[in-house]
Design a binder for these strands. Structure first.
Lengths: 243, 243, 243, 243
DNA sequence: AATGAATGAGCGTTCATTCAT
DNA sequence: GATGAATGAACGCTCATTCAT
């Protein structure tokens, strides 16, 4: 269809806008997120942006949405890892950490979404979509936890729901990265290898909940690396720093 | 002294400005942090603010500083808890979580500091002071970890430093709260009782590292509560939600 | 061309801004040069000004530039006067004086440029252009002096360069006007006919340097008038006061 | 009288204020003329300044007044030089130029007085006093011209008044210095030795009007120097650049 | 007489948004 | 659909002036 070709074109332009917008946020932070800068970078006028997004906030949410989609894909891939329940959980931890480290921009966007009037101003359907997308990711992880329980690898206190457990693990990884990314400012560089200690902590957290097979030493290092290479070799190459 | 009375007054006004500034950030987010809004709220002119702070960024850092000071005090109090090393660590976890939950504004301020040109523009001496204040808090926690090792309650992998361990635990608590405080926005309320699962996760993380005495069940709940009542009863009352 | 029409419109607006800006300076002095006042006078918003000039200083320099361009044109016209070298020099004196008297605003602008941080803040290419434009005018005058020497109408002390001689004459005319334009303020009106005495002084200065043909009496009055009518009749009519 | 001692003290403070104010203008230009900077430099509060001057403009005018007084003194001294009428006139030229070169601040002040609303806002009696002080100086010079005519050294066209002649000469010197002081900005440095060419031009202007004894060559250089040493040796030493 | 915190109008500048073309 | 000039409210900041102490 001729129309379809045109729609395709529009779609491409939208994604170009999103891509450039994300790059701006990443390099300039909140204050770099100006429509003029984005328009210039793309080579269109500011007015054109409004043919694609009804306001600035809608654009921000579109950027966020893309991140969430991407992350969901990674989590899905990780959850499908063929192995023990503990290995699948490990794969998810690897996915989240890798995402956090490669997609620094994602945090910037989240900050913006949180810090301003974004959520209020943006199109409500986009808001719901974003919430849903995020919920899917956590749901998948909770599914792995349930599998572990079913398979007898994990025994939970009666009053702890899988979603809650996910919340704890996820907090550890994301919180760690969040602190790390602040290092240059408020925090003295806590550790040069914050990734390693974060992975170790997550691994020991699984132990703490009795997720079998319990760790016997430093094997987490080998396991995460092998999962990384199997599932995310391409993405891993994008990572400039050490793992 | 007459002089002292006047200085007292000035001091009070400064703290009033800081207080109102924080309140604005809390209620309005990044965009609430405008000098006009703060001035109007206090009932003074914008010019007056400049008699107390040389620029906007200096004010932001003053707000942050107050938070950091307060948190440091809580951490110090917790580290002085009389009990086993594990109890002292637990006390610290309680302190951090309580602070995070009472001082939501603190996160907002940190976001602002991170997201803009604050760090560059602000008075360098204030920047250093803030860094130092933050470093003190983490240092105290690392001290408790070292005590545990010395006392034989904790045995570490050779290549993990106490500061790194602290980094992991701190990440869990702060990350958890950070996600929680976003609930209304991006995340569906993960759990009504995010605090409880966070405390449980932290507790199990200690187990995972073999910090003795290992937990045998749900006793963490009793322990944190008793510490809370002993050390932070007054502060606890400020907490509107359930513990 | 449609494009040209639009560009024409933009160009016109720019010149409108410059025109109004100059008028404000003329009527209100330094403090008339505020963007708000200019915008209101034109009937646009302050923001609009920034679509045409990147900062206040750029606008100031644009105003100055227009003056310098105009003056250069007059000097060029005068230097092309067909007559003896002394007549050509006289024509230049007439041009400078006429410019000074018609373009009072020019002095105000120069004051502003000198008194503030204009030169530092403005676009460097505009600064260079202004310098160059000014240099061209003095260069033309020096050329006339050289012609006079070549033609044997003028004999110089060995150590005086034409440019230096120009400096002296120019000083007399501009300094005279500068004092005159201050009359209403600090100086009592020195003379109702400051122009005439200035012209006479300049004329006698030429005599003092032996520029032939030497004056024999009051013929300078006739000569300047005839030059005025031949070269600057249109501009002369703009002059409200007597010559 | 005890009162007198106190008044003396007040007077001294006023002069201190004036002195500092002038220094600020000299070093910082128009924008350096802020009450805060002046107050800090003196070591008093801004409020105190208002016990001595009713508004900023009054202070500016007081600064100007001091300059005018000083210059008048120099002109008087020069007019009393014992020698021919031409030598006395030369002495005055030397005085004006020296003043212009040493008292750069004077021009800055005049600019400020001219450029703003100073004249309107300032106390009217101060305005009149300043005008009067300025008139006295020109009157003295006109007196020397009259002496020259009486003594037969100078013959004037019937329709030129001594005051007008003074206006021409004065214009040359002050205009020259004015252009010179702009060198670094709009004008290319016209000449390294603008003083010398200015003096030569003034000297030749006297020749042009037939003021005897006419110059025969470069003797103006010797004459101005000897006058300078005789009348203004102390002041000359303040001059950093070459004469 | 001296203080200096408070004032408040004013400044130059930015930027998301609109709309005539 | 794309443009980009115009908008106008908001921003951070300055500073001459006032006035309670």
């Amino acid at each position: 269809m001729g129309l379809s070709a045109k729609q395709q074109q529009i779609r491409e332009r939208e994604q170009q806008i999103i891509r450039v917008a994300r790059a701006q946020v990443l390099s300039e932070g909140y204050h770099g997120f100006g429509l003029e800068a984005i328009a210039v970078e793309i080579g269109v006028s500011r007015g054109t942006l409004y043919n694609h997004f009804s306001c600035k906030e809608d654009l921000i949410l579109a950027v966020l949405m893309e991140s969430l989609e991407l992350r969901l894909g990674w989590v899905q891939r990780a959850a499908s890892f063929r192995g023990t329940s503990r290995q699948r959980m490990t794969a998810i931890l690897v996915a989240i950490e890798l995402f956090a480290r490669i997609r620094t921009d994602h945090y910037r966007i989240e900050e913006i979404v949180r810090s301003g009037t974004v959520w209020e101003k943006a199109n409500s359907e986009k808001r719901i979509a974003a919430s849903h997308m995020n919920g899917q990711a956590t749901g998948i992880v909770a599914g792995v936890v349930r599998d572990a329980i079913v398979q007898g690898d994990l025994e939970f206190p009666a009053d702890v729901k899988p979603e809650e457990f996910v919340f704890g693990v996820w907090s550890l990884i994301e919180g760690g990265f969040s602190i790390h990314s602040n290092s240059g400012r408020l925090w003295q560089p806590m550790t040069k290898q914050s990734g390693r200690i974060l992975r170790l902590s997550a691994w020991r957290l699984l132990d703490g909940f009795g997720w079998k097979p319990l760790s016997t030493g430093e094997e987490f290092s080998d396991q995460t690396e092998s999962i990384l290479k199997e599932l995310f070799s391409a993405e891993f190459r994008l990572l400039k720093q050490d793992w």
